[in-house]
Design a protein around this nucleic acid. Structure first.
Length: 256
DNA sequence: ATGGCCTGCAACGCAGGA
């Protein structure tokens, strides 16, 4: 089972890239973030024609998450139970007995922002919920845009980023809390090139200069991680005309 | 040198992203 996550930064704009990429990468399950469209205009037909069933939870202008799957999807759930949130950032569904949790974790804007307070509270709610969800679903994968670079090696210039969102200690502590639940960072299960990133700023020729961050992740539960055979970042879509600022991250499972 | 770019909304500039 080939899993993927991709922040598309507007599904409307990126649909042609997505359809091309589905055809070439052939993932079984894809988690999308920042679809930025309401559910009534989600491109169900185009994706069905490409061989994918969809679950989605969107809103106007901002946020929006979706799960695409070549295999049947069941038990779809939106949001974090008991955590009131207008923003559409969480979608969970079961595919072939694997609980897929798609997240678009808040950015936080800056350490002195109300959005940062929201980010930390949001992460606490996610961690508490996942602790239970992993009991119910031992085969669980948490995929998405985490807006956290877990370690300094996941940041192109750690010194320049001190005191900013994505790298702050409270955010990293919450990423560690996810690992402490037993989740494993699929990408780090394998040897990887130095300066591997999943997002690059549109400005300053960030991609060409590889001024990036690794903030899109696939975490696997203890029952899934031993069956992970590969994990990589696919930089190809970032090289196209009018790309998303994020690029897909993949993990391949060979389940018994 | 703290901007630079992209998207959506609806406008001729803003919010938000990261």
């Amino acid at each position: 089972m080939k899993l993927a996550t991709w922040n598309v930064n507007s599904l409307k704009v990126r649909l042609p890239h997505l359809l091309d990429w589905l055809q070439s990468a052939m993932p079984d399950v894809v988690c999308l973030q920042e679809t930025k469209q309401t559910d009534d205009v989600f491109p169900v037909e185009a994706l069905r024609a490409a061989g994918y069933a969809c679950a989605f939870s969107g809103q106007k202008t901002y946020n929006g998450v979706a799960i695409l799957s070549r295999l049947p999807i069941s038990d779809v759930q939106t949001g974090i139970p008991g955590f009131a949130d207008e923003q559409k950032r969480v979608l969970a569904a079961t595919v072939e007995g694997v609980r897929i949790v798609c997240v678009y974790i808040p950015n936080g804007q800056s350490l002195d922002s109300d959005k940062y307070v929201y980010k930390l509270a949001w992460l606490d709610a996610l961690i508490a919920w996942l602790k239970d969800e992993m009991q119910r679903h031992p085969r669980l994968a948490l995929l998405g845009d985490y807006n956290i670079a877990p370690e300094d090696r996941d940041c192109h210039d750690p010194a320049a980023w001190v005191g900013q969102v994505l790298v702050s200690e409270p955010e990293r502590a919450r990423f560690q809390a996810l690992l402490d639940l037993g989740l494993k960072d699929a990408f780090r299960l394998f040897e990887q090139a130095d300066k591997s990133f999943s997002w690059w700023d549109y400005r300053m020729m960030g991609f060409r200069r590889n001024l990036g961050m690794r903030i899109d992740h696939i975490l696997l539960s203890p029952e899934l991680a031993p069956h992970c055979r590969a994990s990589e970042i696919d930089k190809a879509p970032r090289k196209l005309e009018r790309p998303s600022d994020h690029t897909p991250v993949l993990a391949t499972l060979n389940l018994p």
